[in-house]
Design a protein around this nucleic acid. Sequence first.
DNA 1: GTCTATAATCGGATAGAC
DNA 2: GTCTATCCGATTATAGAC
Lengths: 189, 189
Amino acid sequence: MPWNEAHKEDSRRRIVEAAARLFALHGFDRVGIDQLMREAGMTRGAFYAHFNSKAELYREAILATARRNGQRLREPSLSLTDLLEGYLSQAHRNGEGANCPMAFLVTDVAQRDEQLRSTYTDVFRGFVELLKPHMTQSEGPQQQDDAMRTAVLMIGGMAIARALNDDALAERLLQACRQPQVASDQEFC
Amino acid sequence: MPWNEAHKEDSRRRIVEAAARLFALHGFDRVGIDQLMREAGMTRGAFYAHFNSKAELYREAILATARRNGQRLREPSLSLTDLLEGYLSQAHRNGEGANCPMAFLVTDVAQRDEQLRSTYTDVFRGFVELLKPHMTQSEGPQQQDDAMRTAVLMIGGMAIARALNDDALAERLLQACRQPQVASDQEFC
DNA sequence: GTCTATAATCGGATAGAC
DNA sequence: GTCTATCCGATTATAGAC
């Protein structure tokens, strides 16, 4: 690859990384292209050599982060407990590292166009598939339901914990969501 | 109460109602004071006779909606199943009626100032307290955890269902969250 | 208290030099 | 490909008439 193309690809990657970080922390609307490009080490004008619009970057940023996080979570040595403790951690709540877009941007995405919601839907589907093999107490359709509930406890738990202003309550909430669950209306004995 | 004051109070109420509706559907940033006041049947200029800033209205709108929804949910005849089915319904997902700010605005709130997050925290605490008496399979600290997990399944489930672009998947998700849960690491027999 | 008009600012997107 | 400069539209908030 010629030096120019490699350089352009690197610039693009830096923009996407900055976008993923800043969108997750402040929301799409509150991050200007100016601030974004400064974080990526360039100026405003260079943006449109890489993307047609800010909205296009939003999709790209969500997908890139999902790919990277998905790769980490697919480590075969990772147990469900590890997975829950890593995701539902104070570090994640404080915006250090992963910054899962599904949790940090749920309502932001829900209010935007179909294309972006499709991207979110794909990422969510992938997340549920990733959880499925960890649902060892069930199989078939019940396993799918368990995986979806676990996904909601993780994503929803993190989203709410971030909205809460009370650190103790947030930690209590995260802890409650770390406990694996099964349906209660079954006959156990 | 003199007619003038009653009239002003009514205007204020209409503004708060419009705000609750529009903020929930489109997000705080994407609703202009212009659009807001038009929905309330006035023009832009009249806004500041009622509120010092748009941010102040945000707090007011969340509190007002929470009070109204809380009152409905405190009906003593309402079972947990009724509660789950009402909240995790397609009507709610489509923005008809309740528009619970906890679900519709989670990440929006998380990205704003401490004062607004405090308001959200108070509302969330009230919601958990409301759920507690319905957690009949547990008591004490375990009951608090069960209530919080149920709150996460409701709020988080609704928030995610709204972000999803696939109606069938969203319905499947809501259905999964409607099943009451208990911890799985207990010994059942 | 509500209106119209306007100030002041900020945002995304484009043009053109290098 | 990246820069500086700029257009254009939208926004919050204020001023002043009624």
